[in-house]
Nucleic acid binder design. Structure first.
Lengths: 349, 349
DNA sequence: GCAAGCTTTGCACACGTGTGCAAAGCTCCC
DNA sequence: GGGAGCTTTGCACACGTGTGCAAAGCTTGC
């Protein structure tokens, strides 16, 4: 016991100049080769039960953890997946990241998160940085990467998956919810409710999702011979929805409004309450996303739901197909959306 | 041009069996040694302007990105920081992750996010996994790691920083908001408002933060000779707050309630509205956290704010001190909180 | 006991980078 | 032109792991 303790102390001193225990340290304590240590920690590799036991004991004693960086060097790839997102505290985005990071871990993948909140030069520099970690894939939840950086990713065998952003001139995979279909659902629902003086609330953000929803809704309403009033300035935030209510309802006698996100809609509802209008009797309001707060008692927002689990499932499926060497062509997936009827839109006329 | 194009094509084929461009590829195209390539991409290393230019041109042509995994192998450390969190879509946690990931990136650190939502064996296995990536530090926002894994981290030179969780028997750094002081503020504010029939709403979660707030508040109220009614079941969610309102207000005629989180308080407020009580005339409600939704028009919740930027700042400061080799003793930091007066607590009696 | 076949082992190399150091190269001054 | 001093360069090694392969070891059947 004394000799054993002295040996362990000596081994620990031997690596004092570096922090982490190496396979070499374990091999010395276990009295085997470094190769045996490696084989013990490599599933399916050949090692005798006796050696395996001695190695595991030594590893436990020393607190050895395989160095994934070194391991990844051999395969030229890590199990990292880069995830680029901004506005991570906004309800919809927070939910998306929650579910995606959960699903990645479940599949043995690790999430390298890059917050694009202050990406003044766009997301390209972030993607360049991610590439240096030899990730398997990159999921872009915010920002629109230029095609040059996407081409570079593809050249390096790294899939880029755009979530809810669609740029038709890139080589990236895209997985989006059916914004056009959702906007049509919203338009039809308002028309069905008898609304004829209609508004649409967006924000100052020039994101593809918001523009797509606003334009599609506007087109549908104009097909019915109505020219909707438009609000499109400010941040994509609750406060903007409230400002839109005061702005639009001060100058228009609207009876139906579509907000391109639920967060805008919740602010709009609170602003509309301040003008004395009754919801939905005087004014119907419909949103898009179905964030948790939309179901809260003061709101009970009627909205178009995009399924977070469908989105996440598609992202993971795309990554896994690539991982299993099944070369696939670009994925362009449009996920269905559905109407969630609550209390902010009148029943049929 | 033709010869140059042929040479580039040949170089690309040479590495066809691996995805990423290496420094060796760049060196061949630029006609220099691989060492020159390395020096070109190492700040402060000696390389002539001519060689530097040729290397950079070749790197751009081939799309070369330094392999951070290999680079980290030399230093036995990456610039990764492990972040462990659960309930990432809850407003408070989402905000914390948003700010932390933003600040890490700003400091040249990368966020390795591990979602602990389904960590049935606690967070220790996640921390073990993180250690394999040779991270610089680990920030734990959810879960209570056992001291054994924390000791292992320390032995490997990895700081573990617990945020808003305090276990006095561990070697981890802890950065928490002043839950005791905040609970005292809430208690005093309700007493000052003249409340004498007081309740406290927690959840079924046995997290240190919630227990601490509930117990501290209860102690303060009992010092005033009042025995508060307690609710402590269900998830830490809006719906639990609503259930607590129905449960407590159905059996108690309360005039003041402290909810240990804002999310519980918002649900409680909506549940209280359903019982016909006026806020704050009949019933004062105070929360803890100051999430964005607390300022929304239907709520305007009076609450105790913990400063997210202070929390994040302390975490980053701790990581950076460690990075700069300034060996410091354990950090135990308690950040001040403050009362945010809105509309849910009566004025003074 | 011996041969055949299977399992296990350690050596030496690879992976992609940074760096110490000796040698080569360059610049400046006398 | 030569010497001194500075800059630059490429070689060879390190970092920590996985693996091909030849050699060693083990097991089974005759």
């Amino acid at each position: 016991m004394v000799a054993s303790s002295d040996r362990e102390d000596q081994l620990k001193r031997d690596r004092a100049t570096r922090n982490f225990v190496t396979a070499e340290d374990v091999a010395r304590l276990a009295g085997v080769s470094r190769s045996a240590v490696s084989r013990t920690f490599t599933p399916g590799a050949s090692v005798s039960a006796d050696v395996r036991h001695r190695v595991q004991e030594a590893a436990r004693t020393l607190g050895y953890r395989v160095n994934r960086l070194a391991r990844s060097l051999i395969s030229d790839q890590s199990n990292l997946v880069g995830v680029v997102g901004a506005n991570l505290s906004m309800p919809f985005m927070a939910r998306q990241l929650d579910e995606l990071s959960r699903a990645l871990l479940k599949r043995g993948l690790q999430c390298l998160l890059l917050n694009a909140a202050e990406a003044e030069q766009g997301v390209a520099p972030l993607i360049e940085l991610i590439l240096e970690f030899r990730v398997r894939a990159i999921v872009v939840m915010s920002g629109s990467p230029p095609s040059s950086i996407i081409d570079e990713c593809m050249a390096n065998g790294v899939r880029v998956i755009l979530v809810n952003r669609q740029d038709t001139d890139t080589e990236a995979d895209t997985i989006i919810s059916d914004d056009l279909g959702g906007a049509r659902i919203a338009a039809e629902r308002l028309l069905q409710a008898g609304c004829r003086r209609i508004g649409v609330v967006g924000s100052g953000a020039r994101t593809p999702t918001q523009i797509r929803r606003r334009v599609a809704f506007t087109d549908c309403i104009e097909e019915a011979g109505i020219k909707p009033a438009v609000w499109a300035s400010g941040e994509t935030a609750y406060e903007t929805g409230m400002a839109a209510a005061k702005g639009l309802l001060g100058s228009h006698d609207l009876d139906g409004v579509f907000c391109v996100t639920d967060l805008l809609a919740l602010g709009f509802l609170d602003g509309a309450h301040g003008t004395g209008r009754r919801i939905p009797e005087d004014l119907s309001v419909i949103g898009f996303d179905d964030i948790p707060q939309s179901a809260w008692a003061p709101y009970r927002l009627t909205t178009v739901r995009q399924s977070m689990s469908d989105l996440t499932g598609s992202v993971l499926a795309t990554i896994e197909r690539e991982m299993h060497g099944k070369a696939i062509s670009l994925v362009h997936e449009v996920l269905p959306v559905e109407l969630v009827e609550r209390a902010t839109v009148r029943s049929s006329t």
